[in-house]
Amino acid sequence: MAVISENIEIAKGIFKMCLSGAPLGEAGQFLMLKQPDSLDPFLARPLSYCNIDKNSGTVTLVYQTIGKGTKAFSKLKQGSLMQAVGPCGRGFPLVSGNAVLIGGGIGTAPLLLLAHALRESQPERHIKVHLGFREEAYLIKEFGQYADEVSVDIGGIITDAADFSQAAAYYACGPEPMLKAAALKAEKAGAELYISLEKNMACGVGACFGCTCKTKGGNKRICKDGPVFNALEVHDVL
């Protein structure tokens, strides 16, 4: 059982939760989180790692209060227990060379650990981050720790800002229309793009077939075979 060491609102409706004792994982992977013994909300919620401090073993998650589950999370106090199953799924591949990260809204959260991992695995690479928000920006300072350039857009279309002709690999996480736009631009430019998908999940471990998506290689389970996919595999069905 993990313990909540911090759970604070960092922007309107956006919370940062820190856990100690949770399983550690890679960028793009996620935890299935649930308040122990609660039957309502019933299911665990998948939240991607936003950052991990390997020294202290602290996991940071950033989430938006959208439904019943995340609203209940936001009310939990420091010291509360949290059931954390994971690490779940397959994360982002760390492609060698310069990287461009594109995040929309709460989809920016998993990209922070990705920027961290990319920087650690290849300190000299150039990392550019495009972050788009509807109203209020968050995590900007944190991205600055790892990225060479961070551009922020509020209310616009973030994919318009990204140039798909310069980097070795592109990574995107955010709303489906954003991912679709990024996938189309990447395909046109012949760029390598990895996207992180989400869907309602029951088990989170690949057993229930509740979150499958159609890909060129047949049905894939977002929770087990993803959530990160090469955009070329899935973009035609997004």
Binding site: L39, D40, P41, F42, L43, K68, G69, K199, N200, M201, A202, C208, F209, G210, C211, T212
Partner: peptide, 10 residues
């Protein structure tokens, strides 16, 4: 969609 949570169930 294949999964939808309900009170104490799905």
């Amino acid at each position: 969609p294949r999964i939808y949570e309900t009170p104490a169930g799905l």
